[in-house]
Design a protein around this nucleic acid. Structure first.
Length: 506
RNA sequence: GCGGGCAUGGCGCAGUGGUCAGCGCAUCAGUUUCCCAAACUGAGGGUCGUGGGUUCAAAUCCCAUUGCCCGCUCCA
């Protein structure tokens, strides 16, 4: 049995060897955590995206699509909270190897001093009993006064440094306060560093102060800022959803595990707008709905699990992940979040534009609540690839590598193979190719022995191989070979489109 | 970001200071066979991740750097 680590390496090697995933700029030694999709990878990725789009947009009459730009007005990210939340001064303790937010360390220190003050107050309360005057005690007791002075002094330094982005001043403050690591108890700190998780670039000829813009760190905000456009122009009635797929960018501190965490990645998101108070109903609904989507691909249920968030992000009042069992364990694949009216309310405030909905049923206007489903396309790709990868030992003792991808996701649906490349078989095979090509990604191949061609298509997950042999010329039949069972059946060429149509639906 | 490991043709690997750097698979051309990685003949493909250094001599030793994997960490 191979261990998980080796298994993962095999998948990465397979992905490269068969044109699924290449490292970006490989000839220049690559770019960390950026990958390109090759000739087969792009098909698989497109198929996943289409399958999602179809199930979300085509199959729901109250969900419509959107394709918003990657560049957005910088205020978008102030309103969303990304500018603040994605700009943390971080510091590492060299002994415990733990990383902390530098400002939080100082704030914890402040809390400790406040704790001391409270102790003094408690002590005094006990001593003086009913005659205790809290205000007077605080304003006169020398030790409490000293503590309060400390707090004021530290706060001034901290927030002054934060406002000026003065990282070395924060480091100095931590040193002066002799703050120790809660884990190692040591004062061996690295420098304070700023991690900005948003990529930025410049855009010319914009309004003052807007020339510095970000690459979006999530696609959701493009939906929120277009909420009113879509609702009005589409005459959408709540509850309704807006779906979008697209690239997002995060300058991850560490981005690793192949395409699991990339700096440039693609999201498939749907924001569902609901009446306030009904968000939990819809949250539960979409949790179930999204899990069913995953299961509809025929992946065993035990590969998936929910993970309910205990600690919620600043915008959420409920959140769960759908986790998938990747080769390196269960990890987040999709998030379902109840985002409340946080985003729309923030955009309303920052833009000064009303983002409300008049609900005729209750005769009331309100800022809708939002339930979000957000899945990483690249993660879904990796999930499918790693689940599909099998090494099989055959009855004759030989081995094969086969990608048991759901047929609907496979890069090629059908390979059309003349048994030999003479006697008119290639011509016959190309006739079949021409009839199937408009409907399916097909692959024609005449080189090498038939068994080898079957194996090549096993390795990229082609669910069916059509083989043209000498009998085909006599009675117009071909063999249809199934990827997973390797079984063959002889069918009439005229039946081929119908049979493929039925079998390739899932 | 810290610690550990790794980097040699497309893939998997051998080669730990000294002949022109090899092997298997794969690729290409041809012959032959034809239903599950057949055989034969021939061919192409690597300045050993990159840059320095030590040495008469470096894939091999040292330093730096880039990338990947693992652990910690982080994760909207």
């Amino acid at each position: 049995m191979i261990n998980q680590e080796d298994f993962f390496k095999k998948i990465i090697a397979h992905a490269k060897e068969y044109g699924f995933v290449f490292q970006s700029s490989e000839i220049y030694d690559g770019l960390s955590a950026v990958y390109d999709y090759g000739q087969n990878g792009v098909e698989l990725k497109n198929n996943i995206r289409n399958y999602w789009w179809k199930s979300m947009v085509q199959m729901h009459e109250n969900i419509v699509g959107l394709d918003s730009a990657i560049f957005m007005h910088p205020t978008t990210w102030k309103a969303s909270g990304h500018v603040d939340a994605f700009n943390d001064p971080l510091i590492d303790n060299k002994d415990s190897k733990k990383r902390y937010r530098a400002d939080v360390l100082v704030e914890d220190h402040l809390a400790k001093i406040e704790g001391k003050i409270n102790k003094e107050i408690e002590k005094a309360e006990k001593r003086f009993g009913d005659s205790f005057n809290r205000e007077q005690f605080i304003s006169t007791h020398p030790r409490v006064l000293g503590y309060n002075e400390q707090i004021a002094d530290i706060s001034k330094r901290l927030y002054g440094a934060m406002d000026n982005n003065d990282l070395s001043a924060i480091k100095q403050l931590i040193e002066d306060l002799e703050i120790v690591c809660p884990i190692s108890g040591s004062r061996s700190w690295t420098e304070v560093r700023q991690f900005n998780l948003m990529f930025s670039t410049q855009i010319g000829a914009t309004a003052d102060g807007a020339s510095h813009i970000f690459l979006r760190p999530e696609t959701a905000q493009g939906i929120f800022v277009n909420y009113l456009n879509v609702q009005k122009s589409g005459r959408m009635k709540i509850p309704f959803g807006i779906a979008q797929t697209g690239k997002a960018f995060r300058n991850e501190i560490i981005a690793r595990q192949f395409i699991f965490r990339m700096r440039e990645f693609e999201q498939m998101e749907m924001q569902f707008f609901v009446r306030p108070g009904e968000e939990f109903k819809w949250y539960d609904y979409w949790k179930k709905e999204r899990m069913n989507w995953h299961l509809s691909l025929g992946i065993p249920a035990q590969k998936y699990r929910f993970h309910d968030h205990e600690k919620l992000a600043h915008y959420a009042n409920a959140a769960a992940d759908i986790e998938f069992e990747f080769p390196f364990g269960f990890r987040e694949l999709e998030g379902i979040h109840s985002r409340t009216d946080y985003d729309l309310a923030a955009h309303q405030q920052f833009s000064g534009k009303k983002l409300q909905y008049f609900d005729p049923e209750i005769n009331e206007s309100y800022v809708p609540y939002v339930v979000e489903t957000s899945i990483g396309l690249d993660r879904m790709f990796l999930a499918m690839l790693s689940h599909a990868y099998h090494e099989e030992k055959l009855e004759d003792g030989s081995e094969r590598v086969v990608l048991k991808l759901p047929a609907i996701l496979a890069p090629y649906k059908v390979a059309i193979l003349p048994l030999v490349k003479k006697d008119g078989l290639p011509e016959k095979a190309r006739e079949i190719l021409d009839t199937l090509k408009p409907d399916y990604m097909c692959h024609y191949e005449e080189k090498d022995a038939i068994g080898r061609r079957y194996r090549r298509h096993d390795a990229i997950g082609t669910p069916y191989c059509v083989t043209v042999d000498h009998q085909s010329l006599e009675d117009n039949t071909v063999t249809l070979r199934d990827r997973d069972s390797m079984m063959q059946e002889r069918i009439n060429i005229h039946e081929l489109p119908g049979i493929l149509h039925n079998r390739l639906r899932s």
